[in-house]
Write a protein that binds this DNA or RNA. Structure first.
Length: 299
DNA sequence: CCGCGGGCCTGAGAGC
DNA sequence: TGCTCTCAGGCCCGCG
């Protein structure tokens, strides 16, 4: 499911019921998700006040008063839902045990805010891990992550530098979390279309070559266009509450709307909407993933 | 080091 | 209706 806009949407949904609240009870309802839970996973969460809920790339990070950080990744199919007690429950009781179809509800937090927070993940590619905040820099899951695409440090110069010398395709480079952290298949396709760049283009062409091995690595106009398109598509998607494909929903259960704004993703055979283009959207496979694009206006 | 392909899981949807 | 097959938004790992 989730790329950066969806994770950010989830963060905004969880923030009001998590920040400032204490985790009264934490429950892992099976031994593992993608990885086994740490033996002290529950112990390090229970009784802790969540002092802040942040996001890094596609990770949610809950700061705990103890100095630990709860790292959460939604994988492909992970989602959270918030169950508030004022629906039809008496004060002090929780909705969760009566929720139906709970097969894939793997983690449960009962918060002092009065809400139950349920993590559901059918495919179990998601995971959670508690780490000490002062060990964040050494955390293998976070090490090597590239810049935040909506952060100040991500600009054409930085993208060009990261792509300089890369023989792989622009599509593959943008999916590489070391180059820029938070894009997935959908938003890469969309950003490439909006910048009119071909997914097959060699990544290194975002940087100037220099002469006789000297200089070069400067951003081309293409790099500038691509950075602008990444900003636009991510910001628009966040504004729309993310995209809803298959069973992905916001924490409230509502659907995101950005999927209606896709220009190419899952639109094979449709007409390209770029002004004056009118080409046909095509699909092919790159690195085992579907790429959607318009060969007429993406060069 | 780099780039690619396989694998992890379950469920939805298409086609028969 | 039900079976089988393909594909899915992520990311780690091992190979060449």
């Amino acid at each position: 499911m989730p790329e950066l806009p969806e994770v950010e949407t989830v963060r905004r949904g969880l923030q009001p019921v998590m920040e400032g609240a204490k985790i009264l009870t934490a429950e892992a309802r099976r031994a593992d998700l993608r990885f086994p839970f740490q033996p002290d996973f529950v112990a390090r969460l229970q009784g802790q006040v969540v002092t802040g809920l942040g996001r890094r790339a596609k990770y949610l990070m809950a700061d705990l008063a103890s100095g630990d950080v709860l790292l959460m990744h939604l994988g492909m199919s992970g989602s959270f839902r918030v169950i508030k007690p004022d629906d039809d429950t008496a004060p002090g009781e929780f909705h969760y045990p009566r929720a139906k179809d709970s097969t894939h509800d793997h983690v449960l937090f009962r918060m002092s805010s009065g809400a139950d927070i349920v993590f559901n993940d059918p495919r179990r590619f998601g995971y959670m891990k508690v780490i000490a905040r002062n060990a964040l820099d050494e955390e293998p899951l976070l090490r090597g992550l590239g810049p935040e695409p909506l952060g100040n440090e991500f600009d054409a110069a930085m993208l060009a530098h990261a792509c300089a010398g890369k023989a792989t395709s622009l599509k593959a480079a943008l999916l590489d979390q070391r180059v820029v952290a938070g894009l997935g298949n959908i938003y890469v396709c969309e950003a490439l279309h909006r910048s009119h760049l071909s997914p097959r283009r060699i990544a290194a062409t975002l940087a100037t070559k220099g002469r006789k091995g000297v200089g070069g690595g400067e951003p081309t106009d293409h790099a500038q266009r691509l950075v602008g398109a990444i900003h636009t598509v991510l910001n628009d998607a966040i504004k729309a509450g993310g995209s809803s494909l298959r069973d992905h929903r916001q924490t409230s259960g509502e659907l995101g709307y950005f999927q209606h704004s896709f220009k190419v993703y899952d639109r094979e055979g449709e007409k390209c909407t770029t002004p004056g283009c009118g080409g046909a959207i095509k699909r092919f496979t790159q690195n085992g993933r579907s790429t959607f694009w318009c060969p007429k206006c993406q060069k």
